[in-house]
Amino acid sequence: MTEVTIQLLGFIAAAILIVVGMGGMLFLDNLIKKIIAFTLLSDGVNLLLVALAYREGGIVPILLPGMSIYDFTSRAILIFPAGIVLTNIVIGVSTTAILVALVIMLYRRYGTLKASVILKGERR
């Protein structure tokens, strides 16, 4: 039996967020709802990365004065996912901004937010 740790709970929550986000992006028709689903998806990925770097009793990976190297390396969390999460937040914001801007433009033209109306296939 796998021990239920905070890390495992984090992974499960991340999986739920990712599935809900993916499902929302695939099945919801309203474009704004699709974008909200994307933010859920992006948060799920962030949580996955944060949970990956979690360590029981871990410390921030900054070498402070007076800290021994051995102590630091045995307790510091993995630094890398933190950097990725930071970048992912920035990228998520810019993607959302661009998508919302395009949706606003298309809403002005079509007067609706339905993806099945605006983005339906057409013969060129």
Partner: peptide, 12 residues
């Protein structure tokens, strides 16, 4: 917009 929505999925 279509490409943007899709890139959001596959970027994640």
């Amino acid at each position: 917009l279509k490409y943007g929505l899709f890139s959001a999925i596959s970027g994640a």
